[in-house]
Simulated assay, not measured.
Amino acid sequence: MTRPMKEKLRNYFKAMPPIFTCATALNPYVNVAGVEFLIEKITNNLDLEKEDVHFSTNAKADFNRYLSNMFDVYLSRYESKVDAAISNDDKKDTMVSFYNMLRKNNIKIARGELERYITTNFISNVSRQDFENFDILAWWKDNEFRFPTLATMARDLLTVQASTVALESAFSFSGRTISLRRTRLDPTLVEMCICLKDHLDATDRIQHTSNLEGEMSMETDIQGEEDEELDYDEEPNNSSDDEM
């Protein structure tokens, strides 16, 4: 059983979109060095270098190239937005001029921000508990001024779901929200219940352990009683079909 599973993992890892590795690198505790370590580790575990001895080296080179190219694209957009904001500003007082000068200097600093981000050690004084409970979006919000272009990348990349598990769980949970005792909820209330449940789980950090697939015991008992009633109702129809 493990052989076909391992073969599927090999095929998946070979064709994995680079957006996943770039998004992982935007975790400051992982960074580029961490992604390169994971690439090498997965390559060894899946024995990918038996087919291509340079697989790990090429994969790491591709990852760095994709990340650098993506950063350049975002940097060009960031520059154009700042230039447009400055050109559309009709005020000429001293404070506005000073503000525009700072924004221009911020662009010059941003050109080297990818290198500064890669070479900075963010995890040297981080405990294991802080590492496990790390709030990456809050970190980027706090460090947006230090890494403006990378922060924009983080907002776009980290909001993309890596899998459909969360969506499937949301649909499953919505199906149980509209239960046998709550069949008249309108769509707005259903959405509020689902979002409230997710918010409470996120506050307690139990989203990964919250049971979204099992049914409530009361609903199971009621469903069992209804199934018995349905079987009872179908008996006369079955008998009439046999007579015909």
Rank of each mutant, 00 (worst) to 15 (best):
Val96Asn: 07
Val82Gly: 06
Met192Phe: 02
Leu189Gly: 05
Glu51Ile: 00
Asn69Pro: 05
Glu132Asp: 04
Lys14Trp: 00
Ser172Val: 04
Phe173Gly: 00
Glu51Leu: 02
Asp62Arg: 14
Val126Gln: 15
Ser68Ala: 06
Asn31Leu: 11
Val30Glu: 02
Arg116Gln: 11
Asn11Thr: 08
Ala162Thr: 12
Arg103Gly: 02
Ala170His: 02
Tyr66Leu: 12
Lys50His: 11
Asp93Ala: 01
Ser179Tyr: 15
Ser169Trp: 07
Lys6Leu: 03
Glu79Cys: 10
Ile206Leu: 05
Phe63Ala: 14
Ser56Asp: 12
Met70Cys: 08
Met101Phe: 07
Met218Gln: 11
Glu79Tyr: 11
Glu40Val: 13
Thr149Ala: 08
Tyr12Ile: 06
Arg146Val: 11
Phe71Asp: 01
Glu213Gly: 05
Leu26His: 07
Thr2Gly: 14
Ile42Lys: 00
Pro148Gly: 05
Ser127His: 06
Tyr29Gln: 04
Ile39Met: 13
Asp72Ser: 05
Ile118Gln: 11
Arg182Asp: 12
Cys22Asp: 03
Glu215Thr: 04
Lys141Val: 03
Phe145Gly: 01
Lys6Thr: 01
Leu196Met: 06
Asp47Ser: 15
Thr183Gly: 06
Thr2Cys: 10
Ser174Cys: 09
Met244Ala: 01
Ala23Gln: 02
Arg184Val: 11
Arg155Thr: 11
Asp156Val: 06
Asn11Gln: 12
Gly112Glu: 10
Thr152Asn: 15
Ala138Val: 13
Asp221Phe: 09
Val73Cys: 03
Ala61Met: 04
Thr119Ile: 06
Glu79Lys: 13
Asp241His: 01
Ile136His: 02
Glu40Ala: 15
Thr164Ile: 08
Gln207Pro: 00
Glu228Cys: 10
Val30Arg: 01
Met218Phe: 12
Pro187Met: 09
Pro4Ala: 11
Gln161Asp: 10
Asn45Leu: 10
Ile42Arg: 00
Leu38Val: 03
Pro4Thr: 10
Lys108Leu: 03
Leu75Ala: 04
Thr183Glu: 09
Glu168Arg: 01
Arg65Tyr: 04
Asp204Gly: 02
Arg146Ala: 13
Lys104Leu: 07
Asn64Trp: 14
Val32Leu: 04
Thr149Lys: 03
Asp83Gly: 00
Lys197Ala: 14
Tyr99His: 01
Leu189Trp: 07
Tyr66Asn: 14
Val165His: 07
Ala154Asp: 07
Asn45Cys: 07
Ile86Ser: 01
Asp242Ile: 13
Tyr66His: 14
Met1Pro: 13
Val190Tyr: 08
Phe20Arg: 03
Tyr117Glu: 05
Asn100Gly: 08
Met192Gln: 05
Val190Thr: 15
Met153Ala: 03
Asp198Gln: 15
Met192Leu: 05
Phe131Ile: 13
Ala85Leu: 00
Thr94Ile: 04
Asp231Phe: 01
Ser68Leu: 04
Glu225Leu: 09
Glu219Leu: 00
Glu132His: 00
Leu189Met: 14
Leu196Cys: 01
Ala25Arg: 08
Asp130Trp: 08
Met216His: 12
Leu212Tyr: 03
Arg146Asp: 11
Asn64His: 15
Asn121Arg: 09
Pro4His: 10
Glu229Lys: 12
Ala110Trp: 04
Glu144Ser: 15
Thr24Pro: 01
Leu185Tyr: 14
Pro17Trp: 02
Val53Ser: 14
Glu168Gln: 04
His208Asn: 00
Gln161His: 12
Lys8Arg: 03
Lys14Met: 01
Arg176Gly: 06
Pro187Asn: 13
Arg205Pro: 09
Asn133Phe: 11
Lys141Thr: 09
Ile86Glu: 02
Gly224Asn: 15
Arg181Lys: 15
